[in-house]
Amino acid sequence: MNVLVILAIIAVMVALRFLKPTIVVWAIAWWFAVFAMANYGIDPPVPTSVTNMFMAIVTIALLAYVTAAEGRMREAGESLVAFFTSKKYFIPLVIMLVAVPLLVAFNVYSSMTTQPAPPAAGRTIHPPPPATVSFKGRTVDLNNDVNPYRHLEDDDSEAFAQHVDNGRRVYYENCVYCHGDNMAGDGHFAHGFNPIPANFQDPTTIAMLQEGYLFWRIAKGGPGLPVESTPWASAMPAWELFLSEEEIWDVILFLYDFTDQRPRAREVHE
């Protein structure tokens, strides 16, 4: 949030109120206020794709407002006619007639001269997992198998702590370089990756997923992502080549333990 910009926008809108502008001016002012808000009021800036959608919705809403009452409609029509015909508005009219094409030209120019960049693309963050994966010749059923050590949490807290500790060791030997000390996806190597490593502190990552899902992602890594989550360039290795099954389950325990999250519970089908 960029407080200064937000205050400035509010100040301008309040000031405008005292000028008692016509409905058309109001609508335009609102439009620009939202536009400025989305582009400059929020930090980091909102991606263009989202601003465009926001502005489309705002445009529809403003149109709806102007046309929803007969009186406003008439007022809007009259002021538009006045703007184009009255001598009084000659200079603003000329400015507008010049500015609008210029703006369009500028937009075209700037979009054509930007640096080459990979096309904007939506990546599927949580691609659907397969029903089963094979792990070193064994089949793991992602839908029905549970973390074989999770039950220890209730049954045998000492053994559980051992598993978590083992997970801690695995994490700091393997994962910490990318996923970071406090699991925020900001390890030493993180800045070199696109997409950046997952942030486990984010409530929309591991807290939304079942443990089997994590097992799948850890075991199969970037190379195991399904086609539909392309384009991907995930640097995550396929850890099945380096870790044992127990180590993977342990590190999953540790992830949840460290971030103080709970895995998504299995839906019980009644």
Partner: peptide
């Protein structure tokens, strides 16, 4: 058309 276009085979 404005959302990501992806074909899944």
């Amino acid at each position: 058309q404005t959302v990501p276009q992806k074909i899944t085979y």
